[in-house]
Amino acid sequence: QTTIQVRVPYRVVGLVVGPKGATIKRIQQRTHTYIVTPGRDKEPVFAVTGMPENVDRAREEIEAHITL
């Protein structure tokens, strides 16, 4: 297991999390990772935990939302 920090712009935190957390839950299920969402007043950084290859996939999925 490994944990990485995925930093995103403030404006996309809501996009990545999705309505009621649906998007981030879907990313967690698809990539078999555990993702901690940043709090409102915190740095916009997601903490992604899982097997290294799964963590990389989750990071790619999160980063895909940044380019939307």
Rank of each mutant, 00 (worst) to 15 (best):
K42E: 15
P52E: 07
P19F: 08
V48S: 08
D56K: 15
K25H: 05
P9K: 00
F46S: 12
T49P: 00
R7I: 05
A58K: 06
R26C: 00
R57C: 07
N54Y: 02
V13I: 14
L68Y: 13
N54T: 02
D41F: 04
V17Q: 08
V16Y: 00
M51H: 13
E60Q: 14
R7Y: 09
Q28H: 10
V48A: 08
G18W: 03
T23Y: 05
A64F: 08
K42T: 10
R26I: 00
R57Q: 11
T2K: 12
L15Q: 13
E43G: 07
D56Y: 10
F46Y: 01
Y10D: 14
T33F: 03
H32W: 05
E63N: 07
T37I: 14
R57M: 12
G50L: 04
T3P: 01
H65L: 15
I35M: 06
M51G: 05
F46Q: 06
R40M: 12
G39Q: 14
M51N: 12
E60R: 14
Q1N: 13
T31L: 03
R26S: 14
Y10R: 15
F46E: 10
P44F: 12
V16P: 02
A58R: 03
E43T: 06
T2N: 07
E43C: 02
Y10E: 15
Y34T: 15
T2S: 06
E43Y: 02
E60G: 09
V12T: 15
R26Q: 13
N54D: 14
H65Q: 13
T33Q: 04
N54I: 12
P9N: 08
N54K: 06
H65M: 15
T37H: 04
I4C: 11
T3R: 05
I62Q: 09
R26A: 15
E60T: 09
P9G: 02
T23S: 09
I62D: 06
I24P: 00
Y34C: 14
I27S: 00
G18D: 01
L68D: 15
G50P: 10
T49G: 03
I66L: 10
V36N: 12
D41P: 03
V55G: 02
A64W: 03
T49A: 03
V8T: 02
Q1E: 14
V45N: 08
V36E: 12
K25L: 08
V48I: 14
R40C: 04
A64H: 13
Y10T: 14
V8Q: 03
K42H: 12
V17H: 04
K25S: 07
T49C: 08
L68C: 15
K42P: 00
V8C: 01
A22Q: 11
T31D: 00
R7P: 10
I66Q: 11
V55Y: 05
V12A: 15
D41Y: 09
V55F: 02
R57I: 01
T3W: 08
I62A: 09
D56W: 12
R40G: 07
H32F: 04
Q28N: 00
V6S: 09
V36S: 11
Q1Y: 15
L15I: 09
K25N: 10
V12I: 09
D41Q: 03
R59W: 00
Q1A: 13
T2I: 15
T49D: 00
P38R: 06
K20V: 07
V6G: 15
R7A: 01
L68N: 14
P44V: 01
F46W: 07
R11Q: 15
A22E: 12
G39A: 13
V8A: 03
G50N: 05
V17G: 05
I4F: 06
T3G: 02
I66W: 11
E61A: 13
R7K: 10
A64V: 01
R7S: 04
L68Q: 15
V17D: 09
K20Y: 07
I66R: 08
K42F: 02
P19M: 11
P38V: 06
R40P: 13
A64N: 14
R30I: 10
Q1M: 14
I27L: 07
Q1W: 01
Q29Y: 02
N54P: 02
G39N: 12
I27D: 10
T3K: 02
G39H: 09
V13S: 04
E53V: 07
Y10S: 15
E63A: 03
G21Y: 01
K42G: 11
T33M: 08
P19V: 08
A22C: 09
A64G: 10
P52G: 05
A64C: 04
T2C: 12
K42L: 02
D56R: 15
G39C: 04
V13F: 00
T2R: 08
L68W: 14
H65A: 13
M51P: 04
A22H: 03
V36P: 03
N54M: 09
P52V: 06
A22W: 06
M51A: 12
I35F: 03
P9W: 07
T67H: 07
Q29H: 12
E61F: 09
T3D: 06
R30N: 12
E53C: 12
R11V: 09
E60F: 04
V8M: 05
E61Q: 09
D41E: 09
T37V: 12
V8E: 00
P52L: 04
P38C: 07
G50R: 09
E43A: 12
T67Q: 15
F46M: 09
G14M: 10
V45T: 08
P52S: 10
T49V: 07
H32R: 12
P9E: 05
T31Y: 03
V45I: 14
V55R: 05
V17L: 11
T23F: 06
R40Y: 11
E60D: 10
R59M: 11
Q1K: 13
H32S: 13
T37N: 03
P19N: 10
A58N: 00
I4E: 03
L15T: 13
P9H: 00
G18R: 04
T67M: 11
V13A: 08
Q29P: 04
N54F: 10
Q29D: 05
P38S: 05
R57P: 01
L68M: 15
R26Y: 09
R57A: 10
P9I: 02
Y34Q: 15
R59Q: 06
Y10P: 15
K20N: 11
E60W: 06
E53I: 11
R26F: 00
R26T: 07
K42M: 14
Y34M: 14
I4Y: 05
V17W: 03
Q5F: 14
V13K: 05
V48T: 02
V45S: 06
P19W: 07
T31P: 01
V16T: 01
Q29V: 10
T23H: 02
D56C: 12
E61T: 03
P38T: 07
R7F: 10
G14K: 10
I35A: 05
V8I: 02
H65G: 00
V6A: 06
E63S: 02
E53L: 06
Q1S: 12
A58M: 03
R26G: 14
D56P: 03
K20M: 11
I66M: 10
T23N: 15
Q5P: 07
I24D: 05
V13Q: 01
T23I: 07
Q1R: 06
T31S: 00
D56L: 14
A58W: 02
V48L: 02
G14D: 14
Q5Y: 15
I62W: 02
V13M: 08
H32M: 09
F46G: 04
R7M: 01
V12H: 14
I35S: 03
L68A: 14
E43H: 05
T2H: 10
I35E: 08
R7V: 05
A64D: 10
Y34I: 13
V16F: 03
P38H: 06
L15E: 11
F46T: 04
E43W: 01
G21Q: 12
F46V: 03
D41S: 07
R26W: 13
N54G: 07
T37R: 08
R59H: 00
R7H: 11
G39I: 01
I62T: 07
D41I: 00
E63I: 11
Y10M: 15
V16K: 04
I35T: 00
V48R: 07
E61K: 06
T3C: 02
A22L: 08
Q29L: 11
K20I: 00
V45D: 00
E63Y: 13
V55C: 12
E53D: 13
G18V: 07
P9F: 00
P52Q: 11
P38I: 05
Y34R: 15
V12E: 11
Q29R: 12
T23E: 10
P44Q: 02
Q5G: 06
D41H: 10
P44Y: 05
M51I: 10
E60S: 11
V12F: 14
E63R: 09
T33R: 07
I66D: 09
H65N: 12
V55P: 00
V45A: 02
P52A: 06
H65E: 15
R30K: 13
I27E: 02
K20R: 11
Q28T: 04
T67L: 11
T37S: 13
E61W: 06
E43I: 03
I4L: 09
R7E: 06
V48M: 09
I66C: 12
Y34W: 11
V55L: 03
V36Q: 12
T3I: 06
H32C: 10
I24Q: 03
V12K: 10
V48N: 00
A64E: 13
I62E: 07
T33S: 05
I66T: 10
L15V: 04
T3M: 01
A22G: 02
I27N: 01
K42I: 00
K20C: 09
K20H: 14
V17Y: 09
V55H: 09
R59F: 05
G39S: 12
K42C: 14
T67C: 14
T3A: 01
V16G: 03
H32Q: 13
